[in-house]
Write a protein that binds this DNA or RNA. Structure first.
Length: 645
DNA sequence: GTTAGGGCTAGCT
DNA sequence: AGCTAGCCCTAAC
């Protein structure tokens, strides 16, 4: 009898360990798939996790964070499906739910503040955008005021409105801007930031822009927000928010810009001749097909500074040659080519240039600090940081080798119990993390990862009955019950995985995705550095560090492109390091950066759009923050030499 | 301030 | 040694 019990105990132990492996693997896989934007696969892996975690799973210290991340991503993935609910008690949208999870993650785990802030803001913006997109303007307003309109924004908004008031008072007769005509005069003293504007879409748009300008100085995501807002508003037939047509004058754009941006109302504002901000943003957005999930995974969204800078700079010039596009145009671009032929600007005639060579330039070459732009180029590239750092949770949970991966109780997400920040609950969760040594990975209740269609309030599957009862020791650590992970309402179509895009993004820029796609296995990653000689790459350079890096990089990439490599750990590390450095290498005069395929593509598009020679515009429009105009010109020259163009 | 075009140089072949 | 990519420099605008 005792032997039987012992045997079953062994089986249970084995199962828990194996299940833990499976969960670990699938969690990693899910993250990877999400990163690769393979959302259909992501959902499938989520299903697998759901099934596995219904079984006993040995928990590890970092499992709570991993599961929390999966929950977070699942909600992001379902972010646009407002009819999905993760919490039967509180009808929050998936993105709101994600926000709550993010809050809890920041409380329970050590996550870099910068990442947190970025994720928070992106999420908040997307919440508002999603509500607007779905016509839930009241909700959008509520979210906007709740999440985005910080006191600073309100001040900025007040300035904006005050300025609008002045503009209307002084220049009102001259204005024929469509938007200005329909925006009712606002009394800045009475209602600087009206909660219930007479024309909600207009006010929301202003607020969005205000919030964007004030908060998201580096937010590319707001570009999408703008596009979605404008598209949606037009879709619902609100003519008031139509963008100015191509025939509208630059003065109209000027007026529009003057009154829309709170930052422009601030002392350190942009030059008054700015225009085209939202339109430019819309065009920027149209360059890629975004999904909510992409906003989280896109490298560009992580490395976020490009487009906002482009916006700031473009405001000075973009609208002159490129009047705002209509929504249809934007949609067309979004669907296909980011730059259509009809919007290509007629090339300006080249100025006649001298043909003589520069004389005495060597003597004139003085040791002079380059301009600020060049200095900027020499700044270290910011590292792309992952949304979270699972290992960082170890410090808090390290003592619980058998502890549950949980700490994610069903109540921690419900707004009733966490009205605003729910900081009070964090300690209890931490305590649970450390105390539930036998609890396993559970604690992730049904409504955490899996949304349900709102009308369906009760779980229909058996898993609802599988909720871990507190009375079952060694209870199933799974927090990811089957219906918890699997949405009740499955997405009918998954966002495009865009494999070609991934593929095209490789020439000079080996991304982590590529590393992941090229047979990087755990074993390879964990293998000792003594790799097989045939996999090593010959070092050909005489300069030990940089040159060898460059050589090795090229060799590795060439081999990788042929798809016949098994990466060794040092190679992977090397590639990751190279990626982090953005393919920089030292020159005698500073840091040189290889042009990535993405940059090259943008340059091509820019030349197509603005014409060769308009490097400043191209740079601004595409946010070549780390490239000077001359860099663009030189690259274009190189491309022409290569007959790439 | 921006652009064109020549020059320079590290790295590669 | 020759080639190339990326950057620098300067005149022209």
């Amino acid at each position: 009898m005792a032997a039987k019990q012992c045997a079953s105990s062994d089986i249970a132990s084995v199962e828990r360990v194996v299940n833990r492996w499976i969960v670990d693997y699938n969690l990693s896989l899910a993250l990877e798939l999400f990163k690769k934007q393979q959302f259909k696969d992501f959902n499938e892996v989520r299903d697998v996790l759901s099934a596995v975690m219904n079984r006993p799973v040995e928990a590890t210290s970092d499992m709570p964070l991993k599961i929390r991340i999966l929950q977070f991503l699942a909600r992001i993935n379902d972010g646009e499906k407002l009819d999905l609910g993760y919490d039967p008690d509180m009808p929050v949208s998936p993105l709101e739910s994600a926000l709550l999870i993010l809050e809890s993650m920041t409380e329970d785990f050590v996550i870099p503040q910068q990442d947190c802030e970025y994720a928070f803001h992106s999420l908040k913006v997307m919440i508002v955008a999603t509500f607007i997109k779905n016509g839930k303007f009241d909700k959008a307003t509520e979210m906007l005021n709740k999440h985005l309109m910080e006191p600073a924004d309100r001040v900025a908004a007040q300035k904006l409105i005050a300025m609008r008031f002045e503009v209307e008072g002084s220049d009102g007769a001259d204005e024929n801007d469509e938007e200005e005509e329909i925006i009712p005069p606002l009394n800045p003293q009475r209602d600087p930031v009206p909660l219930k504007p007479c024309k909600p879409p207009i006010i929301q748009r202003s607020r969005l822009e205000a919030a964007y300008k004030a908060l998201a100085e580096d937010e590319k995501t707001f570009v999408q927000l703008e596009q979605e807002v404008e598209t949606e508003i037009q879709d619902v037939g609100d003519l008031h928010l139509e963008l100015p047509s191509d025939s509208e004058t630059e003065q109209n754009d000027l007026c529009q810009r003057k009154v829309c941006s709170p930052m422009e109302a601030s002392p350190a504002e942009q030059p008054p001749q700015t225009n085209g901000g939202p339109q430019v943003q819309a065009r920027l957005l149209s360059k890629q097909h975004y999904t909510v999930a992409r906003l989280v995974t896109e490298p560009d969204s992580q490395f976020s500074s490009q487009y906002s800078t482009a916006l700031e700079e473009l405001e000075t010039e973009a609208g002159t040659k490129n009047p705002p596009k209509t929504q249809d145009e934007c949609r067309e671009k979004e669907q296909q080519c980011p730059v259509s032929d009809d919007e290509t600007v007629i090339l300006t005639p080249k100025r006649p240039r001298r043909s003589k060579k520069t004389a005495g330039r060597a003597a004139a070459r003085v040791v002079e600090s380059s301009d600020s732009e060049d200095n900027l180029n020499k700044k270290e590239m910011r590292e792309e940081t992952p949304p979270s750092h699972p290992n960082q949770s170890n410090s808090r949970n390290s003592e619980t080798s058998e502890q549950g991966a949980s700490g994610l109780q069903d109540d921690y997400i419900t707004p009733e119990k966490r009205p605003v920040k729910r900081r009070s609950t964090s300690s209890s969760r931490k305590k649970r993390n450390s105390e539930t040594s036998e609890q396993g990975a559970s604690g992730l209740q049904d409504d955490y990862i899996t949304p349900e269609k709102r009308p369906v309030k009760q779980r229909s599957t058996s898993s609802s009955g599988k909720k871990r009862s507190s009375g079952t020791p060694k209870q199933n650590p799974s927090a990811l019950q089957e219906d918890c992970i699997t949405p009740v309402k499955r997405p009918e179509k998954q966002p495009s995985t865009a494999p070609s895009e991934k593929k095209s993004k490789t020439d000079h820029n080996i991304t982590p995705e590529i590393v992941g796609e090229t047979s990087v296995t755990e074993s390879s990653l964990e293998s000792p550095p003594t790799t097989s000689p045939q996999q090593s790459v010959p070092q050909m350079s005489s300069t030990p560090e940089q040159a060898s890096s460059s050589t090795k990089w090229k060799s590795l990439y060439k081999t990788a492109k042929e798809g016949k490599v098994t990466w060794t750990s040092d190679e992977v590390d090397f590639l990751q390091k190279e990626t982090r450095c953005n393919e920089s290498f030292r020159s005698n005069s500073g840091l040189k950066r290889r042009w990535t395929e993405e940059e090259t593509q943008m340059l091509k598009e820019g030349v197509k759009k603005f014409g060769e020679g308009n490097w400043c515009k191209i740079r601004s429009y595409y946010g070549f923050k780390e490239r000077t105009n001359v860099n663009l010109k030189d690259r274009w020259r190189t491309m022409k030499n290569q007959k790439l163009v």
